[in-house]
Amino acid sequence: MLPEPLLEIKQLKKFYDIKTGWFQPKQQVKAVDDVSFTVYKGETFGLVGESGCGKSTTGRAILRLQEMTSGEIWFQGENIAGLSYEKMRKLRRKMQMVFQDPYASLNPKKTILQILTEPLRVHGLYSQEERVKKAIEILEIVGLSEYHLHSYPHEFSGGQRQRIGIAKAVILQPELIIADEPVSALDVSIQSQVINLLLKLQRDFQLTYVFISHDLGVVRHITDRVGVMYLGKLVELAQTEDIFTDPKHPYTKALLSAVPITHPDEEKDRVILAGDVPSPLNPPQGCTFHPRCPDCMMICKTEKPPVIDLGNHVVACHMYST
């Protein structure tokens, strides 16, 4: 059976104009530069990269929480890139988001009941009593209980708040959930609980996830396919196992070598990158990775690398061009 695409991102770009001063030319930060990928129904698609590489911006642009500069976003066969606020609002029933910071993403003045019934209310679903029932139901699914209904967000721990954030996203039974670093603000012990909850919800509700993270261990555990981002560009995209066992792009190799070894006898080559991430204000010519690349060639300094398909394994690097 051919997988059915749920979400297609085509040439997504998000540039920020930066004013450095009066009479100075405007500069642009290319936060997301020409990113394209497809997410299939029922899968978990991972977006990884170091902080500042544009993965969160991509996630927010997909949900139109940030206006993009250009590009197309096809969701269930419809280009949602140009939809009005009101049309987009109705579509949001099918696409939800889990935020990174469970302390900031819940309104401190609302009770859990108000937070959880709001999505149902604004989409005109169910009657008032049924909404309360649904809220209790979803609270129990995410591991909390009816007793918490009348409490406020500040009365919960970080893990509990993230469960509420997830409940708020799942209560509409959406098709797609974009999880923007959903566990990185949590304790390690809580992280695994929340990840298991996400996996369980995916099975029960047939959810599709776009999972944004910098934690490679978590990404390997839960994603089916992974895209690696560097300085606003997608540098490699493949099945999770392929990425982790046979990385192609030098950046991916370096990134993976930074994952701590779990077995004491295991040995591996540590690729240490020289220098810092260049400023996105004036990214390097040619391949943006070339100043730090251990395998840098002459051509890398002048020409942008083409996107090469190695059979279900896409990589943007001159090393693989013939």
């Binding site: 606020y85 609002r89 949001r92 939800q96 988001m97 309104n107 609302k110 999505p119 604004v122 708020k168």
Partner: peptide, 20 residues
Amino acid sequence: EFILSCIATGVPRWEIILRH
């Protein structure tokens, strides 16, 4: 972020202003 979260939920603009 909780205002972004409201937009993501699909809350109408005037309701975001009045309720949140």
